[in-house]
Design a protein around this nucleic acid. Sequence first.
DNA 1: TTGATTAGAATGAACGTTCGTTTTATAATT
DNA 2: AATTATAAAACGAACGTTCATTCTAATCAA
Lengths: 198, 198
Amino acid sequence: MTKANKKVIQSGKGVHERVIDASLHLFTQQGYFNTSVPDIVKASNCSTGSIYHHFKDKEGIANALYESLLHRMNAVLGEIEQQFPTSKQRCRAVIELLFQLTETEPDVMEFIIYAKHKEFLPGNNPICSSRPFQKMREFITEGIANGELEPIDDMVAAASIYGGALRLIVLRLDGVIEHSLMDKLDDVWKCAWRSVAA
Amino acid sequence: MTKANKKVIQSGKGVHERVIDASLHLFTQQGYFNTSVPDIVKASNCSTGSIYHHFKDKEGIANALYESLLHRMNAVLGEIEQQFPTSKQRCRAVIELLFQLTETEPDVMEFIIYAKHKEFLPGNNPICSSRPFQKMREFITEGIANGELEPIDDMVAAASIYGGALRLIVLRLDGVIEHSLMDKLDDVWKCAWRSVAA
DNA sequence: TTGATTAGAATGAACGTTCGTTTTATAATT
DNA sequence: AATTATAAAACGAACGTTCATTCTAATCAA
């Protein structure tokens, strides 16, 4: 890697957790292939041998990281499913979750969005980039099945909203459009969302 | 790389062009870091020395590839600017260009979208993923400046449409949502676009 | 012949991984 | 309670491999 990446994980946690934390940070900051195992060693405050005691190989770290985030994400999605009875409420909750994540845990969000990309993780893990969106589609499909949502228009509208949320996240991360315009778009999408799901 | 990637560039072209062609294909197929220089040697039917005679290093190949695509893209955008006088027409043309590219030259499109990602190209080249979108914003800004477009609503709407186009491309590439739904979304966006830019 | 281009073997640095050892934690025995 | 025994975990130097790059010889074009 290029320059010093000072963020060193505190030593209260165990090796597994420290490596996962460090990897999430390094992989999202520099990418998988730009992050060497020695980099992870330094950032996690663990030794090489210790890491290879807990993980099969470098790819194993990435997989464990993915599992960890998927697990967390599934837990949150499960809560949403429990807490909200209707499909509309659930969809809204997922969108709000995504909005919230972009602000509170950008690393996680970037991982969710980009993890599928060929050079972010070795191998193909199509699911990992789209878990919340998969769930979203489930909600929509169920809602249509039990008559909560109208078959065509609502589906398109909801999918449109969900697409909008994704777009917002992608663009915000990429810095393609500036923040003031982004805020206006936020309003547009929220307004559209309200009209569909209110 | 892992398996044989049979696509070999024809020998009618020169070294520079063959390497660029092969790199575009390999980088978009496998990614920059998964593509070794020997891979490029095989795919381009050039020798190692020949490649290093024409390019400074591997990163130089990626940069030249980027320059090449940027050049082509600027040419097309220039034509659009010449051909269409109004901002609305120009914006529409850019979107149509993007739609068209996803079908005729998926490699180029994938490059435009993903080139900025940390692991696709070394270094940061913020411009390269967003050239058409930059131009789009120019058109919008100009349109507002000379009164062609209404300051607030049209800007948001147009940006929304352009975001939609981007979203379509991203999602189609990722296969996140299936094609039938995608077609419906296409209709939604085209309809929205018509109402704004007609 | 001379300079530019091509060729591919040689090189050295960097990487992921392994391995023998040491340390720490837990259990068993006296 | 003190000592020994056993296992798990941590360590980091060393290894083999791969990669980008260089180098020297061969080839082509003028």
